[in-house]
């Protein structure tokens, strides 16, 4: 039973590495498939124009997903991040327009994000409620705030005035920011207590606590790290169009979840959580978004195909055969 060194490509190897195979396999499949299929359909997905579409499509999702790795490794999740992106985008536009300072808008957003992160991280543990519940409350509260703001303005969207947001449309900047984020998060996640403790909590909170890990503290840290990157994502979301609306960010929380699962992230968290899941999953997700319409699949069908792929990945990663024992 012991000392089994699994051979590469053996049955056991597939079993133990199922999630990684799904993550890398998904993105590889998409790359190979679209490299062949899109030129046949007319325009290659690797053409300059399409590549830049791909980057701008992937950037917000990837920043959010990579930032969310900490929270998901706890086995928790946050469904308020979509509304958070919307609110921060709105705040940035409104503050920049009224004071002329873009930085001030970002700072205010950061303060709110850290606050939400601290509360979301602490409530689950202190009040013994599931993390989804506290983030659901925030989702509703933020949604309410956003409605108040937009109804107060009498308009459903706001646009930047007197501020050049051109820089945020640069694919080069997007790629650099993403790379920097991945480096920071990978460092924190793999080489510091923060990541190691988060994974330990996800794998077994009781044993983690008995090993001296302060659950509240490390959960709060995980949520705060995510909150910071939600603000970064909001900058790019707002910067791309130079505007925000009452529907900005809608559904992002689910896209993040789907991307992470596509990348092979276990939803229960724990030791098998990896930063690469977030990157791989986001690219798979965006490759499908951009590639499928090129090969002639109508936009409204794209979601069905994503659903099918999603189910396949879930089946690969979550296969367990166990029946209930009869009396």
């Amino acid at each position: 039973m012991e000392n089994t060194k699994t051979k590469i490509f053996s049955k056991n190897w597939f079993k133990t590495n199922a999630s990684a195979i799904a993550g890398y396999g998904g993105v590889l499949f998409c790359i190979i498939f679209f490299s062949i299929a899109t030129p046949l359909a007319g325009e290659s997905i690797w053409s300059a124009a399409k590549l830049s579409t791909l980057i701008s499509d992937v950037i917000v999702l990837a920043i959010l997903s990579v930032g969310a790795v900490f929270v998901y490794s706890l086995g928790s999740m946050d469904i308020s991040i979509g509304k958070q992106v919307g609110l921060y985008a709105t705040i940035m536009v409104a503050i920049t327009n009224s004071t002329g300072s873009f930085i001030l808008g970002v700072l205010i957003s950061l303060v709110i994000a850290v606050f939400i992160g601290l509360v979301n991280g602490a409530t689950g543990e202190l009040l013994h409620i599931h993390s989804v519940v506290s983030s659901l409350v925030f989702m509703m509260v933020l949604s309410g705030i956003s409605t108040l703001i937009y109804s107060g303005m009498g308009s459903r969207n706001v646009a930047l005035k007197n501020f050049d947001h051109h820089i945020f449309k640069s694919p080069v900047l997007m790629v650099i920011v993403l790379i920097v984020e991945v480096i920071i998060v990978t460092f924190l996640f793999n080489f510091t207590k923060f990541g190691k403790n988060a994974r330990a909590i996800g794998a077994n909170p009781v044993a983690a606590e008995q090993s001296g890990i302060n659950l509240v503290k490390y959960k709060m840290i995980a949520y705060v790290i995510m909150g910071v990157f939600v603000v970064v994502a909001a900058i790019f979301q707002m910067g791309y169009t130079g505007s925000a609306s009452d529907s900005t960010g809608t559904g992002f929380e689910m896209n993040v979840m789907v991307a992470l699962i596509l990348g092979g992230m276990p939803l229960s968290g724990g030791m098998k959580s990896r930063v690469s899941c977030a990157v791989l999953g986001s690219f798979t997700f965006s490759l499908l978004n951009v590639g499928l319409p090129i090969i002639g699949i109508p936009v409204n069908t794209v979601n069905f195909i994503k659903a099918i792929i999603f189910i396949i990945v879930v089946l690969i990663t979550c296969r367990k055969s166990r029946g209930i024992l009869p009396r």
Binding site: R199, A200, A203, N204, V206, A207, A208, Q210, G270, M271, K272
Partner: peptide
Amino acid sequence: LEAIILDA
């Protein structure tokens, strides 16, 4: 359940 993390 408490002393060690099995899944690690």
